[in-house]
Simulated assay, not measured.
Amino acid sequence: MLSETKEKAELTAQIIAEQKNTVILTGAGMSTESGVPDFRSESGWWRKIDPLTIATAEAVEENYTLFHEFYSNRLSALSDCRPHEGHYCLERWEKTGLVKLVATQNVDGFHQEAGLVNVEELHGSIQRFRCHNCGVEAAKEKFMKKSACASCGGKLRPNVVLFGEMLPETAWKRSMELVEKAELVLVVGTSLQVYPVNQLPALTRGKTAIINRDETFAETDFDLAMKGSAKEVLLYMDNYLKNAGF
Rank of each mutant, 00 (worst) to 15 (best):
W45R: 02
W45E: 02
R47M: 12
R47H: 13
K48Y: 12
K48M: 11
D50Y: 09
L52H: 12
L52I: 05
T53I: 04
I54M: 10
I54T: 13
I54W: 06
A55W: 00
T56A: 09
A57M: 08
E58D: 14
E58Q: 15
A59K: 07
V60M: 02
E61L: 14
E62L: 12
N63E: 14
N63Y: 05
Y64I: 10
Y64Q: 10
T65C: 05
T65Y: 10
L66I: 08
H68P: 08
E69K: 14
E69H: 13
F70C: 03
Y71L: 05
S72Y: 07
S72F: 06
S72Q: 11
R74T: 01
L75G: 08
S76H: 09
S76T: 09
S76D: 11
A77W: 04
L78C: 06
S79W: 05
S79G: 06
D80S: 15
D80W: 07
D80T: 15
C81V: 07
R82P: 00
R82G: 03
P83M: 04
H84V: 04
E85N: 12
G86A: 08
G86P: 03
Y88K: 10
C89D: 10
L90D: 02
L90T: 04
E91H: 09
E91L: 00
E91S: 12
R92A: 13
R92K: 14
W93A: 07
E94L: 03
E94N: 02
K95Q: 13
T96N: 13
